[in-house]
Simulated scan of single mutants.
Amino acid sequence: MILDELVTATHNRLERQREKVSLPKLKQEVAKLNATAKLDFLAVLQRPGIHVIAEVKKASPSKGTIVTDFPYLQVARTYEQAGADAISVLTEPDYFKGKLRYLNEISAATSIPTLRKDFTIDPYMVYEAKLNGAAIILLIVAILTDEQLCNLRKLAESLGMQAIVEAYTETEVTRAVRSGAKIIGINNRNLKNFAVDFGHSFKMRSLVPAKIPVIAESGISGPADVKRLAQADFKGVLVGEALMKATNKREMIRAFKEF
């Protein structure tokens, strides 16, 4: 399964990175950071309307290279100028061609929250996210135990970040709620085979208590999809491929924000 391969690659990457920078050293670097943080993303989601997480994404396992021209800083600035509420940055290098450097530079160049989009499996990656400017991390229920979900979320919060806890199945959504997640993402993409079903998130929405903001992820292609999600009480959408391929990214984001 693709997900198993991604997790294995992440473990291997972690081992290589620990040889370069130890966890104690990483913690020291994080401790030196200026205490000033970007706007709390949970507070953003509590505002009226639907909120857009616009993704900077070069490739994926299912689509291969999405764009050959990749001016990531320009794209990120365009997203912010168009009214995006946060920017998702792929940092997984083996399958998504992401880099931590992209996150670092985009976080420095923009004023809205940035999300480290990766397969976070260890506290080391949470500290990496913080050091490189992230205000949000992604925690995928399918690859974490209940203890890990809780501990990694609490660590992120202790560092001034928020966690989007991502689920796909009914069991995963239930686990996300039980873990104490403050933000839940429902993925329309099955990470075991990368098949996408836009209607999937609607089926899962009722499993999440109304007090927890829910974000729909994957398979969102245009304003009509966002309108349906807004009507179903989703508080946010994470859009990657459609925005990366859009000839007018500003116009697309502004159309999303009308609902």
Score class of each variant (00 low, 15 high):
N34S: 14
L14P: 06
F234M: 03
F70L: 06
F119Q: 07
R47K: 15
L207S: 00
V196W: 09
R16V: 02
A134C: 10
L144F: 07
M161W: 03
E128I: 03
L90H: 05
I220R: 04
V237H: 06
R101I: 13
K38R: 13
E166K: 02
H11T: 12
Y168K: 01
R77Y: 06
N190V: 08
P61I: 01
Y72L: 00
L159D: 05
D69H: 15
L152H: 09
K117C: 07
C150V: 15
V208D: 01
P24G: 09
Q46H: 15
S111D: 08
N193C: 04
H200V: 01
N248I: 13
I121F: 09
R153P: 02
F259H: 12
Q46Y: 14
K63T: 13
V237K: 04
F198W: 09
L90D: 00
R116N: 11
P123H: 13
E251H: 15
C150M: 13
R101W: 12
V141W: 02
I220P: 00
Q74E: 11
S158V: 12
A142H: 08
I143R: 11
G222T: 11
V7E: 02
E29Y: 11
A167I: 01
G180T: 04
R205M: 07
V21P: 01
F41W: 07
R16S: 07
N151V: 07
N104Q: 14
A9V: 07
G83P: 06
V226T: 05
K192A: 04
A142W: 11
Q28N: 12
N188I: 04
A108T: 12
I136F: 08
V208T: 03
T110D: 03
A246L: 05
A246T: 08
K154N: 10
T91A: 04
R254G: 00
D233F: 07
Q148R: 14
S88C: 12
M1H: 15
P213A: 10
G83R: 09
M252Y: 06
M252K: 08
D40L: 12
E128M: 07
A232M: 04
S107M: 10
A156N: 13
V239A: 04
I164E: 00
G180R: 05
P93Y: 03
D94T: 14
E217F: 02
R101D: 12
A9H: 13
A142L: 10
K25F: 14
L73W: 02
S111R: 15
E80H: 10
E5F: 08
H51R: 10
A37K: 15
V173F: 00
L45E: 01
T145G: 10
V126F: 07
R153A: 09
P48C: 11
R189W: 10
A230I: 06
E172N: 04
K203D: 05
V177A: 02
A255H: 05
I136R: 06
G240C: 04
Q148K: 15
K154P: 02
I2R: 09
L138Q: 03
V141E: 01
P61C: 10
A59W: 01
L45P: 00
R205W: 07
G64M: 11
K63N: 13
A230H: 13
E80A: 11
A210W: 11
A86L: 04
R13K: 15
L152A: 05
E251P: 06
G49H: 12
Y102C: 06
P24A: 06
I136T: 08
L159C: 11
A156G: 14
K27R: 15
V208L: 03
L3I: 15
I186Y: 00
L33V: 14
D69V: 09
V67F: 06
